[in-house]
Design a protein around this nucleic acid. Structure first.
Lengths: 359, 359
DNA sequence: CTGAAAGCGCTTACAG
DNA sequence: CTGAAAGCGCTTACAG
């Protein structure tokens, strides 16, 4: 079957263009056809007990015959609890590997409960966070999982008082007490940098994301911890922050390694995915991938297949998503206990690039 | 700030635990506070023209004071068009790179129109497709973008007659005439295989996904096209299909290359992401990554950084998502013209692995 | 320019 | 076990 066959095929199946548009049948229509009251249809559709078997049968047959689809919005509007069986998910970018893995984990937990997931990307824009949450609240989602871009979440107090369940993921909330799931950013970064120091490195560069991002600050703190533990001072020349793209990382690394021999770092700690890839590219460009050590924070696909293999501090986005859903559903089930913070450990994976010794 | 600081901080902000739960204010409440009718509030909230400026002000002040959030479900229930400003997205797996890139492209187009996106993963399960669509229909989504798992979509005829906009992506619908966006699977695969043949290879293995998947069948057809164009017969020993995981691909490639010297392929065409990664791992394991040529279908992150670089037939998931949203919104805007099939070209990217000559 | 009444498709709270 | 009436939070279709 070629592409042009697809074209033919697409106009080949059942065509209903000539058929009149159909109005969706309501419970009234089903009731009329089954010759029962509206309330009886409601009972059958919601599988409430205590309807005689013959009426159940008649209603179900009528529903199938009319191809009836209950209107969830009408149902939740009238319902006392007002639940919509929908949650909202605010991620940095639904298209990036970390966010989309978190998304998938939450989806799996949600599906098990018949809950649908609205997902959106924030792109580090605090204003977008507020707008999207407003929109989700207008849709009356039962809960929200937020990887926040904003730095003040007090605007959510009223929403929670109105019954909205809230869980923060990847980054903590500010000026709001809410359940939170975090990676062990500081400890993980410290482990990664310590590992480089253990190889004998003294000049380890830190390549960081925007300092407005809490995880970037945490990871920098971990870098400082490791240096302090080894009684090494932080050399400002070796710290490059606010790198938010592959290109920015390539430039920073190229510049760092083009310095005077004695000033250049012998090892790099890349605090984020794209920065790690940029560092790899730069090392490759300079032909230094076997000379300069590199440890990255966060897993990168194919990291085991580059040469040398990429050593990383791996996060566990699946576990983070699972923990977030668990906390969220607990709140949605009515738990009013104290706020929980769950820290998901990272794992140092040694594959070669982090085990390069200093010259 | 360390993890334990986060812990402290999370219980440090405003706590509203002691405050009474709040009932959400309605338009009635806003009307009462502003001392106007319900209908006037509705006009102001929906920015209908012809309300005197002082009433607009009073209503807006009351809305802010009460922290009013319009209920979109109630609004769309009463509205004549019944629109929910929501679309549903059914992907193979929201967590995989291809799906999540498509997702992001659709989200961007949707956000520009104030439309929210419900996303779900099908995992190749036709039953899940039907259940999720039923659920989305109960939520009265305005449209659906479907990367289908099922092989019969006639069940959607009634939904479309009821006004649901439908677009298929990545794979065509069956027994249904609907707008569709596809990659140039067959042509792309033919180009990739032809490229290997041009390097002088005669024994090119095909590593395929499950034959139940239309893209896998298309890509196999492209493989056959290229061989036919070069007057080379298909050797069944070199065709390994139904590979759906990295592990399955590793096994298949290992087996293929462990055969008698004359029987083994000198080049591999991997028809899908995970299969490509499996092939890479197997070649690496056998130490053959510089001996056996490899072209993969679909882009792989870091493909430029392995050695040799990975040559691929790249799809354009962003363009596919953009095309799908365009077609979908056109239908949602009332277009009843003939069905369109858009084929998004692939691009052959040469980075080394596909340019290895036969021994 | 403003508002009172009816109704969207359901569930609730009753009554029988 | 079954059903008639009221009402969820809005917009529609009028009337003034």
């Amino acid at each position: 079957m070629s592409e042009s066959d697809n074209l033919v095929r697409a106009t080949d199946g059942l065509t209903e263009q000539h058929l009149a548009p159909r109005v969706r049948p309501t419970m009234r229509d089903v009731a009329a056809l089954a010759n029962v009251s509206l309330k009886t249809v409601s009972r059958v559709v919601n599988q409430e007990p205590g309807v005689s078997p013959d009426l159940v049968l008649r209603v179900n047959q009528a529903a199938v015959q009319l191809d009836y689809r209950p209107n969830l919005a009408a149902s939740s509007l009238r319902r006392t609890d007002g639940r919509t069986a929908t949650i909202g998910l605010l991620l940095e970018d639904v298209g990036n590997p970390f966010s989309s893995t978190v998304h998938r984990a939450i989806e799996d937990a949600a599906r098990a409960r018949g809950i649908a997931v609205l997902a959106s990307s924030l792109d580090e824009d605090p204003e977008r966070e507020r707008q999207l949450i407003r929109n989700f609240v207008s849709r009356r989602v039962d809960g929200l999982v937020i990887a926040p871009a904003a730095t003040d979440h007090s605007y959510l107090v009223n929403e929670r008082r109105a019954g909205l369940a809230l869980v923060f993921i990847d980054r903590p909330p500010s000026y709001l007490d809410a359940d939170t799931v975090l990676a062990a950013n500081r400890d993980g970064a410290r482990d990664g940098v310590r590992h480089l120091l253990e190889q004998g490195h003294r000049r380890v560069a830190f390549l960081g994301d925007m300092r407005s991002i809490s995880t970037a600050r945490e990871r920098f703190a971990g870098y400082q911890d490791a240096l302090r533990d080894a009684s090494i001072g932080v050399d400002a020349q070796l710290v490059r922050q606010d790198l938010h793209s592959i290109g920015a990382a390539v430039s920073a690394v190229t510049e760092l390694l083009s310095g005077t021999a004695g000033d250049a770092p012998t090892a790099l700690f890349a605090s984020q995915n794209l920065v790690t890839i940029g560092a790899l590219r730069a090392l490759r460009g300079l032909g230094l991938q076997r000379k300069v050590a590199l440890v990255g924070f966060d897993e990168v696909m194919l990291g085991d297949l580059v040469e040398p293999g990429l050593s990383v501090v791996a996060q566990d986005p699946t576990a983070m998503g699972a923990a977030a859903s668990e906390l969220l559903f607990r709140r949605m089930d009515g738990d009013t206990g104290p706020t929980q913070v769950r820290v998901i450990p990272t794992r140092l994976i040694l594959r070669g690039s982090g085990e390069i010794a200093p010259p």
